[in-house]
Nucleic acid binder design. Structure first.
Length: 203
DNA sequence: TGCGTGATATTCT
DNA sequence: GAATATCACGCAG
C-alpha cells in the first residue's frame, strides 16, 4: 500500500458524527519494526465534546489525561480504563474543540499472526478486534501512542481503503455502549457500525 | 451473570 | 496531600 493512501489532516477536521461515518471502512494501521498490523474500521462512536455528558471533556473538563482531545484533529487520544484496558479515539474538529471518535471494532486484515499471539484469549479471529479494548491489545496500542499525530506518524495511522462513504443504508446508528450515566445523552444514536458485519462488538 | 483491576477525577482534610 | 468513587470493558462461568 503506497504512502499516499494515508488520510490527510483535512479528513479529520470535521464534526465527530460526520467523521465517525467517514471512518467506517477505512484501514487503521499499526506499524511496529516495519511490521504492519491492521484492520478495517467497522464500528465507531462519536463523542461531542463539552456539551456531551458521555465525553471525557464534558463541561469543558481539561485534564492531563484528556489533553489530546483538546489538540488538533488527526491525533490519537489513548486512555486507560477499568484498571486493565486501553481505548483509542481519533481527535476531530480543530484545536480547543475537544471532540473525538472512539474506534470500537475492526475487521482484521494484516498481521493476524501477531494479533493472535497478543490475544491468546481470542478463540476465533472474530474475537481479535471486536471491542475497543480488544483492538488496542491486538494492535499493541497503549499510552505510548497517546497524542500521536496520525497524519505524520510512522507508528500509527489510517489509510483510505474505500473512496466513497458507506451508503446510509449500510450503516446502523444506535446508542453508545456503556454510557448509561450520561442522562439523555446515553440514548443519542451516536454509535455507528456496518450493517450485519460479523466483526462488530455486538449487533 | 458477576467480578478484576488501577489510573483518574473529585472531594475531603 | 490523602481518601474514595467511578469507569468509552473483557472474561470466566
Amino acid at each position: 500500500m503506497s504512502a499516499d493512501a494515508r488520510l490527510t489532516r483535512r479528513f479529520f477536521q470535521r464534526d465527530p458524527v460526520t467523521l465517525a461515518k467517514a471512518l467506517l471502512g477505512q484501514r487503521l494501521v499499526r506499524a511496529d519494526d516495519g511490521r504492519r498490523v491492521a484492520g478495517l474500521i467497522v464500528e465507531v462512536e462519536a463523542y461531542l465534546g463539552e456539551r456531551d455528558a458521555a465525553a471525557h471533556t464534558f463541561g469543558g473538563r481539561r485534564t492531563k489525561r484528556n489533553q489530546a482531545m483538546w489538540g488538533p484533529a488527526g491525533h490519537a487520544y489513548v486512555y486507560f480504563t477499568y484498571g486493565m484496558h486501553h481505548c483509542v479515539n481519533i481527535v476531530a474538529q480543530r484545536e480547543d474543540v475537544p471532540e473525538a471518535v472512539l474506534i470500537r471494532a475492526l475487521e482484521p486484515t494484516e498481521g493476524l499472526g501477531v494479533m493472535r499471539a497478543r490475544r491468546a484469549a481470542a478463540r476465533r479471529d472474530r474475537d481479535l478486534c471486536s471491542g475497543p479494548a480488544k483492538l488496542t491489545q491486538a494492535l499493541g496500542i497503549d499510552l505510548g501512542l497517546n497524542g500521536e499525530d496520525l497524519v505524520g506518524s510512522t507508528r500509527l495511522f489510517i489509510e483510505r481503503a474505500r473512496a466513497r462513504r458507506v451508503p446510509e443504508a449500510g450503516v446502523v446508528a444506535s446508542p453508545r455502549i456503556g454510557v448509561d450515566y450520561a442522562g439523555g445523552w446515553a440514548a443519542e444514536p451516536l454509535r455507528f457500525h456496518l450493517r450485519d458485519h460479523p466483526h462488530v462488538s455486538r449487533p
